[in-house]
Design a protein around this nucleic acid. Structure first.
Length: 518
RNA sequence: GCCGCGUUCGUCUAGGGGUUAGGACGCCGCCCUUUCACGGCGGUAACACGGGUUCAAAUCCCGUACGCGGUACCA
């Protein structure tokens, strides 16, 4: 049974735009938190200064918001709206020590250095950690030496540390002298030699590792920053995180974390390692792979690509989880209700872009024509403004069953807004010898129609007249007409479309097609 | 290499001792539509392999293979 205080965190590092895999991890954390009436914390793991990317944090926050996930605690979680206070432009509440983002702040690890130092000292004091003065080069040298002598995965461990420069091998006074002299050092975890580390993973069951396969993980780097391993344990404890739900790539470093909890004398949170999202060609869905397979990797690409956020959320939720029934479509609220960890699958899940598009269609079609029309106007005002509002709404109704994403409406419906500039080469196969003559005849009759009669019904009966008179197939005139009016071989109902485009433009396009296509 | 984790239709998955192994995406066909789609109906297609345990194994156990992850002063 899940205890009362569920607190989970999404802890991305701001090294780039939010990856789709990170977004799913975040989603599962969010769903779990909401399902149990718990708290969803966002923590920024910016301990690697060399990989820090400006704007990454803002991208993460924006991505979560776009999906509809609300952060309970984290940077900006309780930020006031600009202008709510009379602090004047440029007034800043953020910065080191700001705790208004939640009761356990700060939520950026770079702002918690003092905390890590304090806790690391406890580890030093109780012998669970030690100072190591070896330079990066020296460690590298050691590795190479070991590799040469046939050790495929050299480690700074129980054995090798005995020949390195650290507070376990150096005389006490030299350690003291080096520390006082300000010699650079790292702090390493003192991993015991022969111990079995066991823990129960909510998704995988009992997992166990032998400590002899682990190295003396660096806890504090020489720049004074903690590594992920230390920071994540200290923060999860201090922030009272109840469940750690993260990607499977963390599974093998979990024993180090367990060792740390033990060294501190803390109860570890419940662990749950999620299956990875895989690329269709196999392997973890990396940027390179995904993009070469036409899959956007960054959440921002889905935003700018005009995907429906509900569709992405729904799709991602089902990538590695299922509610156990035959349902497919669920809102974020419903997913919160349904989500449990015991229904998360163990194996990696291949990203299926076509299924995502199917989800996108579902969510697009359930929106009213008016809503979509308004969104179109916001997307491309210039093009869309050429058309009266009501006509645009009608056009949306004609088009929306035929596209996967909202931006495709602009492409497919371009002919509603402007005369076709050229004909789709694929469609030209349907333009035959007699097409020009037939289209010309059709134009003549439409021209002769009173403008009051210019509607879908008479547009259609006019075509039927000609076809019947000549004893030819419907499509014989239908397709050339479509090509002349839209420049395409497919699209919404032609007669409705022509009625919407209007008499003047239709006559103009027919004449132009007869002339240009012969 | 070593350590860990996985493995049910092409893909996402349900099913956890007795099922005609279910659904969804995709694909194919038919119907609707004198057009493209939507929609409706139908079809294709899976328990990685080998041993056990059992009256009975996709399901439990052990191997093997394959895949993936990790093996950093990156997260």
């Amino acid at each position: 049974m899940i205890s009362k205080n569920v607190r989970v965190r999404f802890a991305p590092s701001p090294t780039g735009f939010l990856h789709i895999g990170g977004l799913r991890t975040s989603l599962y954390n969010y769903l779990f938190a909401r399902h149990h009436g718990g708290t969803f914390v966002l923590r920024i793991e910016d301990t690697d200064q060399s990989r820090y990317v400006e704007g990454a944090e803002a991208d993460i926050i924006r991505s979560l918001e776009w999906c509809g996930m609300t952060v309970d605690e984290g940077p900006g979680a309780h930020a006031e709206k600009p202008g709510a206070h009379h602090d004047g432009p440029g007034a800043h509440h953020d910065g080191p020590g700001a705790h208004h983002d939640g009761p356990f702040g700060p939520y950026r690890q770079s702002e918690r250095k003092a905390i890590y130092a304090e806790y690391t000292q406890k580890l030093i004091d109780n012998g669970s950690a030690y100072y190591a003065f070896d330079t990066a080069d020296e460690v590298e040298e050691m590795r190479e030496r070991l590799i040469k002598s046939g050790n495929p995965s050299p480690k700074y461990d129980y054995i090798t540390r005995q020949s390195m420069k650290n507070s376990l091998t150096l005389p006490e006074d030299e350690v003291k002298r080096r520390l006082e002299a300000g010699d650079p050092y790292v702090i390493r975890l003192n991993v015991p030699r022969n111990k079995t580390v066991k823990f129960e993973d909510e998704i995988r069951g009992v997992v166990s590792f032998e400590t002899k396969g682990l190295d003396d993980q660096v806890l504090i780097k020489s720049d004074g920053m903690p590594t992920y391993h230390l920071a994540n344990v200290v923060d999860d404890h201090l922030m009272q995180i109840s469940h750690v739900i993260r990607g499977e790539e963390w599974l093998s470093s979990t024993p180090k974390h367990i060792l740390l909890y033990e060294a501190f004398g803390w109860e570890p949170p419940v662990m749950a390692h999620l299956p990875l999202i895989m690329s269709p060609s196999g392997g973890k869905l990396s940027k390179r792979k995904a993009e070469s397979e036409g899959i956007p990797v960054n959440t921002k690409d889905y935003i700018s690509g005009h995907y429906e956020p509900e569709a992405l959320v729904n799709f991602l939720a089902y990538l590695g989880w299922s509610p156990g029934d035959d349902s497919e479509i669920h809102s974020l609220e419903e997913l919160c209700e349904l989500f449990t960890l015991d229904r998360v699958s163990k194996g990696g899940a291949v990203f299926n872009h076509k299924k995502l598009l199917w989800y996108n269609e579902q969510y697009l079609r359930q929106q009213s024509d008016e809503t979509i029309a308004a969104r179109l106007r916001a997307m491309d005002g210039d093009l869309v403004d050429a058309m009266p509002k009501q006509n645009l709404v009608t056009a949306v109704g004609l088009l929306k069953e035929r596209v996967s994403k909202i931006d495709e409406l602009l492409e497919m419906g371009r002919f509603f807004f402007e005369d076709p500039q050229e004909v789709d080469p694929a469609a030209m196969k349907k333009w035959k010898e007699d097409s020009a003559e037939l289209v010309g005849e059709y134009r003549k009759r439409v021209d002769a129609m009173p403008s009051s009669a210019f509607d879908a019904t008479s547009l259609k009966s006019t075509l039927e007249e000609i076809v019947n008179e000549r004893g030819i197939g419907f499509g014989k005139l239908m397709m050339p007409l479509r090509i002349a009016v839209t420049g395409q071989g497919f699209g919404p109902d032609l007669f409705e479309s022509m009625a919407l485009i209007g008499r003047e433009a239709v006559l103009r396009r027919l004449a132009s097609a007869v002339e240009r296509l012969g």
